[in-house]
Simulated scan of single mutants.
Amino acid sequence: MIETIHQALKRLETRLAHEELDVNAAFLLLEHVTQKSRASLLAELREPLTELQAQQFEDLSSELLTGKPIQHIIGQEWFYGRPFSVSKDVLIPRPETEELVQGAMQRAIKLFGNKLIRVADIGTGSGAIAVTFQLEYPNAQVTATDISEAALVVARSNAEQNESQVTFLQGDLAQPLQNEKWDIVLSNPPYIGVDEASSMSSTVLDYEPHGALFAEENGLVLYRKLAETLPAIMKKPGLIGLEIGYLQASSVKRFFQNAFPKSKIEVVQDMNGKERMIFCEIQ
């Protein structure tokens, strides 16, 4: 029996809830299978799925129920209103990272106005930060780095897909940026302590690249290294924007206070009231 859109949606939501998985994925899967927008689907809830759609929905639902992220099944995630391809080689972009980009742009306008600026995104992954900043802030010349060649393949494809001009360089942290001076450096590095793995959901642990998730020294090693290497390559005035784990603010702030003694350092909360960003304005 062919189900209506509403019946298929409710059945999958119930199964996802039973497995303690994200029920919102059911709607995203239906959008993918029907190639309709959320508004269209809501207007057509009583319409039946075609036989082909019903079969595809059933097959992909089985994958979803294993804990595989919906973004890997449909091949993309939206970030700042744009589609970004994702794969097992990159971290799925999160809404908190959109807040990092937004906060960086607000501060950049105050610091630099309409001047042409050089911006680097360290550990770019899918390219979401670099591509978004370049498109939203046209006077920014953006360079993005990653240690993973596989991640850079995804990032380059996302830049092309979104018609963004970003230069991509392979290398560890700021190492590929050493020959230039930078107005802004942004980074969302791996920051989860290795010992935290046991408390994480299998959807993240089993499917997302561990190199983009975990870091030594209780997740702080890369912030320490950035604080050591960035003073040599930052312009004055300059801006550094970092996404951090919600318990890391005091440690990361200390690294950058030591590295840039005269800077203004802000710890910023995300939409959930957690301390998830640090901005360092270099005077």
Rank of each mutant, 00 (worst) to 15 (best):
I2T: 14
T4E: 13
T4D: 14
I5H: 13
I5F: 04
L9C: 05
L9F: 07
R11N: 10
E13K: 07
A17K: 06
L21Q: 02
D22I: 01
N24F: 03
A25Q: 01
A26G: 05
A26V: 01
A26K: 04
F27C: 04
L29G: 10
T34Y: 01
K36E: 11
R38T: 07
L42G: 00
A43E: 05
E44Y: 11
R46C: 01
R46W: 03
L49H: 08
A54D: 12
D59H: 05
S61R: 06
S62F: 00
S62G: 06
E63K: 08
L65V: 01
L65N: 08
I70Q: 06
Q71A: 14
I74M: 02
I74S: 05
G75P: 00
W78D: 12
W78C: 04
F79S: 09
G81M: 06
P83W: 10
V90H: 03
L91C: 10
R94W: 15
P95V: 08
T97C: 14
T97N: 13
T97H: 13
V101F: 08
Q102K: 15
M105I: 15
Q106A: 15
R107V: 14
R107Y: 14
K110E: 15
G113M: 08
K115P: 00
K115E: 14
A120H: 12
G123C: 06
G125L: 03
I129Y: 09
T132A: 05
F133S: 07
F133H: 11
Y137S: 03
P138A: 12
A140T: 02
A140K: 05
Q141T: 09
Q141F: 07
T145D: 03
T145E: 02
T145P: 00
D146R: 01
A151T: 02
V154D: 02
A155V: 03
Q161A: 00
E163V: 01
S164I: 02
Q165L: 09
F168K: 05
Q170I: 05
G171A: 11
D172Q: 09
D172E: 13
L173Y: 10
L173H: 08
P176G: 14
N179M: 12
N179S: 15
E180K: 11
E180Q: 14
K181Q: 14
W182Y: 07
V185H: 11
V185L: 14
I192M: 01
V194C: 04
E196T: 04
A197R: 10
S202H: 02
D206L: 00
E208P: 01
P209T: 02
H210Y: 01
H210R: 03
E217N: 09
E217A: 08
G219N: 06
R224W: 04
K225Y: 06
L226D: 07
E228K: 07
E228T: 13
A232D: 15
A232P: 12
I233E: 13
M234T: 11
K236R: 11
P237H: 06
L239I: 13
I240R: 11
G245T: 07
L247G: 12
Q248S: 10
Q257C: 04
P261Y: 11
K262C: 04
S263W: 08
V267Y: 05
Q269H: 12
G273K: 12
G273I: 14
R276V: 05
M277C: 12
M277E: 13
I278V: 13
I278R: 11
